[in-house]
């Protein structure tokens, strides 16, 4: 048995266009921020290796496009996700209101085995803008919504200043790891008396 088994976590980032999904990812992976807005088209993939509690694992981050016209890609992209990050802009009410749609859409398309307990993380981004004066969604309101959806962890972030980004992704990774289950792989053995038909009992995995 390899003592240090490596794990790969697929993380999907969702949210309205312009809330800063790509910037958050860039800040996290590359420690860089660009004030210029460039729309992501379709999806963008980043990989980051993380060491946590003596375990080495890899985050495979799927940065998706926020525009509605790309949402037909959902099934293909969301399949097998280990964690989903919902992002909104604290300065744009609509992006917060849409969180519910993003969450539901994800659950429908990815159809995880245990939707109630699927690990989400919510990020309220752009807290740096205008010193917080243009903010329209209060932290209290956001936390209330997260609580109502099964206590989703919540972070207020600034991709620009790097505030809370590292911390948020740490929780993302941790929660993704939590849902990882170890199961026993036990395929059938051939029944020689009836070689063409495997026995009916399924595999126990």
């Amino acid at each position: 048995m390899p003592s240090r088994r490596r794990t790969l976590l697929k993380v999907i980032i969702l949210g309205d266009s312009g809330v800063g999904k790509t910037s958050l990812m860039n800040q996290y992976v590359n420690k860089k921020f660009s004030p210029q807005y460039k729309a992501t088209i379709g999806a963008d993939f980043l990989t980051k290796e993380v060491q946590s509690d003596d375990r080495l694992f890899t985050l495979q981050i799927w940065d998706t496009a926020g525009q509605e016209r790309f949402q037909s890609l959902g099934v293909a992209f969301y399949r097998g996700a280990d964690c989903c990050v919902l992002v909104y802009d604290v300065n744009v009410q609509k992006s917060f209101d849409n969180l519910n749609n993003w969450r539901e859409e994800f659950l429908i398309q990815a159809s995880p085995s245990d939707p109630e307990n699927f690990p989400f993380v919510v990020l309220g981004n752009k807290v740096d803008v205008d010193g917080g004066n243009s903010r329209v969604v209060s932290e209290k309101k956001a936390r209330a919504w997260c609580a109502s959806k099964g206590n989703i962890p919540y972070f207020e972030t600034s991709a620009k200043d790097g505030i809370n980004v590292e911390e948020a992704f740490e929780v993302i990774a941790k929660n993704g790891l939590k849902s990882e289950e170890e199961e026993i792989y036990l395929p059938d053995t051939i029944d020689v008396g009836n070689t063409s038909q495997p026995r009916a009992s399924g595999c126990d995995c």
Binding site: N30, K32, Q36, I41, G42, A43, D44, R69, L73
Partner: peptide, 13 residues
């Protein structure tokens, strides 16, 4: 046009 990706660039460190 719906799948793509961002240009390689300077914001990558």
């Amino acid at each position: 046009s719906s799948i793509s990706f961002n240009t390689p660039i300077d914001e990558r460190t």
